[in-house]
Simulated scan of single mutants.
Amino acid sequence: MLKKVLSYLIPIKIHTEKSSLSKCIEVTWANGELVLDSENTNYSYGSLQRVLRYGLKTIGFDKIVKMEHILILGVAGGSVIKTLVDEIKFGGQITGVEIDPDIIKIANQYFKLDEIQQLEIIIDDAFEFVLKTKNKYDLIIIDVFQDTTMPNFLYESYFTNRVCYLLKSKGFVLFNTMLLNKEDNLRNEKYIANFCTVNHNIKSIPRIEVHNELIVIEKKM
């Protein structure tokens, strides 16, 4: 409790761990809440939870609570899962795909992810999982980062088309992107401009954090 109170004055790091995939993982008390960070950016809770919550609110909490199956590519500490379960009261199935088992170990220890009964965690590469899965989803959340880097496959048309194929009728994709420079902004503009399918709509959401832009894809039928 003391560390939580003191964290309103200064961040207090309580756990640091090296990971072969994520390099450095840190758990910190900051402004009265636990957050999960990589070496250079926020991975879960804190500002990232606010960004993804804003995206979910844009889609509509009332729509999400009626959904049956949600896929999350990139779990980290599971802050978006906590928003779905604790705030939105989503009662359906959640499948979380995370490539780094060390992060899931920390998420279970500090954020009690393993206590969420409707959640299935799969340790796998997001691209590989999307190719293999036979399921269809009402909502697919893409939140895949390696520190401050976004893997190139996220912007490839083959991956995008496959993700859209996995959507149920009137389903949504919520794609969280990081923009650190002019090139990143141009990358997103090109991605949206080149998106080509008559069965889906695409749009970006006005930013609430300078370096994060959310892109929403909606399946029409």
Rank of each mutant, 00 (worst) to 15 (best):
M1S: 12
L2N: 14
L2V: 15
K3Q: 14
V5C: 05
V5K: 06
Y8C: 10
H15D: 01
E17P: 06
S20K: 11
S20A: 14
S20Q: 12
L21N: 11
L21T: 07
S22L: 11
K23W: 06
K23T: 07
E26C: 15
V27K: 11
V27S: 10
V27I: 15
W29A: 04
E33T: 11
V35W: 11
L36Y: 04
L36V: 13
D37E: 14
D37T: 13
D37A: 13
S38P: 00
N40M: 13
T41Y: 09
N42S: 15
Y45T: 03
Y45G: 06
Y45L: 04
G46W: 12
G46Q: 10
Q49C: 15
Q49Y: 12
Q49E: 15
Y54P: 06
Y54K: 09
G55H: 11
K57C: 00
F61K: 13
D62A: 13
D62L: 09
D62P: 07
K63D: 11
K63S: 11
I64V: 08
I64R: 08
I70R: 04
L71V: 03
L71E: 08
L73D: 09
L73I: 02
V75E: 08
G78P: 07
S79Y: 07
S79N: 06
S79C: 10
I81W: 03
T83K: 10
V85K: 02
E87P: 04
K89T: 09
F90T: 06
F90I: 03
G91Y: 06
V97T: 12
I104T: 06
I104A: 02
I104C: 04
I104G: 01
K105D: 09
A107R: 06
A107D: 08
Y110Q: 00
F111C: 01
K112T: 07
L113A: 04
D114E: 04
Q118V: 02
Q118E: 12
I121G: 02
I122S: 04
I122C: 05
I123C: 00
D124I: 02
D124T: 04
D125E: 10
D125C: 03
A126H: 03
A126P: 05
F127V: 06
F129I: 02
F129E: 05
V130I: 13
K132S: 07
K134N: 11
I141A: 00
V144D: 05
F145E: 08
F145C: 03
T148W: 02
T149R: 14
T149N: 13
M150D: 01
P151Q: 09
N152S: 10
F153S: 09
F153L: 11
F153I: 07
L154I: 15
L154T: 08
Y158H: 00
N161Q: 08
N161C: 04
R162N: 15
R162Q: 15
V163C: 10
V163W: 01
Y165Q: 13
K168T: 15
F175V: 01
M178D: 00
L179V: 14
D184H: 05
E189V: 03
K190W: 03
Y191D: 00
I192P: 03
F195V: 13
T197S: 14
V198K: 13
N199W: 06
N199C: 03
H200P: 01
H200V: 05
K203L: 09
K203A: 07
K203Y: 04
S204C: 09
P206M: 04
R207P: 06
I208P: 00
H211D: 14
N212E: 10
E213A: 01
L214E: 07
I215W: 03
I215L: 08
I215F: 01
E218S: 12
K219H: 05
M221I: 08
